[in-house]
Design a protein around this nucleic acid. Structure first.
Lengths: 344, 344
DNA sequence: ATTTTTTGTTTAAACGATTAAGCTTACATT
DNA sequence: AATGTAAGCTTAATCGTTTAAACAAAAAAT
């Protein structure tokens, strides 16, 4: 039943011409290749009649371009990345590209494997959310001359294209906002990581305190190991609250940390924001279900994803395209979890 | 710098033999093709030295197999599907397949476009979460003889491979559980849809009431239009609560409906479960953040995803593979939102 | 009328791998 | 010595497209 695929040859046969001519016509090169007017029309008609679909594989083999983009993210089951993936996928499709997604689980080794699988599949370029310790991979791509754009994170010491939010400012804004609302004892729960964006989030927090002449207490800054998140977040919160100067507010440096933290805060029957004010990075419907709407830093995910794709596609179309490094602003969405205390 | 790709030809040249021989050796056909022992070793050595990576495109062009699977889901930004996608992706990679994901947004037309893009890309097979009105697409695949497995949903009137949960039983369990916990006035908020899984969820609910000699009130069953979810969920809840016999408990037929519903319940300052008990389909960390842990039907996502991939891969390896239709059980995770009333 | 140019088309190589079929040798069998 | 057969390797076609180069015929220029 399934009538086999029609190829250029089939059309050529039916039109009584060579495949070359058909190729010229169907790839819009009639002018340059001075194809006869009538035969061109005839060829197009036949192609339409037979419902000709060019063979992507053959095209790719010949041209070296697959019109495929590799997207390497931390974890597709994390709503932040799932959303980004969704946007990247849509945007890429609109530009004629297909996306292959891989989750690195924040492990450089997995990311390396993915990278190689995708290079092997001849993706034209990459959009990458780098995991810790994956510098080598970035250098590798540069050496291989494979276009790529880093998303959400980048390396301070490597010159690359990237699209991220201004993490320093975002974190600073979160801290300043809490301070302006009367909180003075403010903790930060972040990941223990060498990744620049995390360093920046910590730096922004510290800067907010410093600029408001607040002295940070060593128990207020916690760096959690990714693989022990549940245990360590609990310990961090316990410690922050039982310090000699306990915190009145906590900033979570990622959505994942916040989810764990809020769960534990529920468990400990602490009231937000009466006992503890909260500001968090990231967003997801989870925050909407919390009894006290959570103040969070809204990342312009749509913009981030779209811009990354645009940038990459520009580089694919024009390899001479200069480097671009784009910082976007995260918007602090102020809700109840951080605004009970009256401003001093 | 970027040393260009090494091909069979390069190896052949270096070894002083024809590409055919190299191909035989590297594809493990030395025995059948009686390649000389020494030269075989030599070829393997050279291949390793040059770090030869076979060209997937060429292989695919020749063989007609791309080792690529198309995954069409409703929406990657929905945590349920993101999780499924994640699992499918991992499992497929373990079997040597690459996954291309597309979101249909529950629109048959988008799904149709996706399908064609992916067919054009020569995916070997599909895993599909069908959207309403996409029967034609299923028939199309059958006619084209392209292997596929339906996931999460299927069509009662079309014979296909599929992997889903037993929606009737799951819904029945939810209803029966509430009844056993003393609730008699139970509402269901579902989507207005012809999709079989939704019909089954409604049927299960009705059956639970009936079997317990409870008479359903017409205001208790609400079918929401997907595109007006926010407005209609609110209206549904309002209506259910202001009916002459108001509901004491609500079952949400999907995670998305629950998120919307719970938000509104918060807004109306209703207490769960004192004012209203809740049971919902689906799961996501959102439910963990709710002040009152939500009783939900836990779908065996890991199993669903893995099994779908396994099934598809089996069909790809052996086209004669018979049809399989797999129903799995959703487990009711009982938590506080449905258990305050004492069993009668 | 001859040469040049233009126009329209075909040939064939290339992308990289696979594989049936053919070609040499060397060896075994009679 | 003549024949058969295995072993070891090469040739060439194939998958479907693209594209430089060659070619033939018609039109324009001399």
């Amino acid at each position: 039943m399934s009538k086999k695929k029609v190829s250029l040859k089939d059309i050529a046969q039916k039109a009584g011409v060579s495949t070359a001519l058909v190729s010229y016509v169907l790839s819009g090169k009639e002018k340059e290749s001075r194809v006869g007017k009538e035969i061109a029309v005839e060829i197009k008609k036949i192609a339409k009649d037979l419902n000709y679909q060019p063979n992507h594989l053959a095209k790719s083999l010949r041209s070296g371009k697959t019109f495929t983009i590799g997207l390497i993210i931390a974890d597709l089951s994390n709503p932040f990345f799932a959303n980004i993936a969704r946007i990247v996928e849509d945007e890429a499709r609109n530009s004629g590209y297909t996306v292959i997604i891989g989750s690195s689980d924040e492990q450089a080794e997995k990311s390396w494997d993915l990278l190689n699988v995708l290079i092997n599949r001849h993706v034209d370029g990459f959009i990458i959310v780098s995991s810790e310790g994956s510098e080598k991979q970035v250098y590798h791509l540069k050496e291989m001359n494979i276009p790529f754009v880093l998303l959400d994170r980048h390396f301070a010491e490597i010159q690359t294209d990237f699209v991220t939010i201004n993490n320093f400012k975002a974190s600073y804004d979160a801290g300043a906002h809490l301070i302006e609302n009367g909180y003075q004892h403010i903790g930060l729960i972040a990941y223990k990581s060498n990744l620049f964006h995390m360093k920046e989030r910590i730096r922004g927090y510290l800067h907010a305190l410093k600029e408001h002449q607040l002295v940070m207490h060593k128990h207020w800054l916690k760096e959690i190991r990714f693989n022990y998140i549940e245990k360590e977040v609990k310990a961090a919160i316990d410690d922050m609250l039982s310090a000699d100067i306990p915190v009145e507010a906590i900033i979570f440096a990622t959505y994942g940390l916040a989810v764990n933290g809020l769960k534990y805060i529920n468990e400990r029957q602490l009231n937000v924001p009466a006992d503890l004010a909260i500001v968090s990075f990231g967003q997801a419907e989870g925050f909407d279900l919390y009894y006290c709407p959570i103040t969070y830093l809204k990342q312009p995910m749509e913009d981030l994803g779209k811009t990354a794709v645009e940038l990459l596609v520009k580089k694919l179309k024009n390899p001479e395209q200069g480097m671009q490094q784009i910082l976007m602003e995260a918007k602090l969405m102020i809700r109840d979890s951080s605004t009970i205390k009256v401003a001093t």
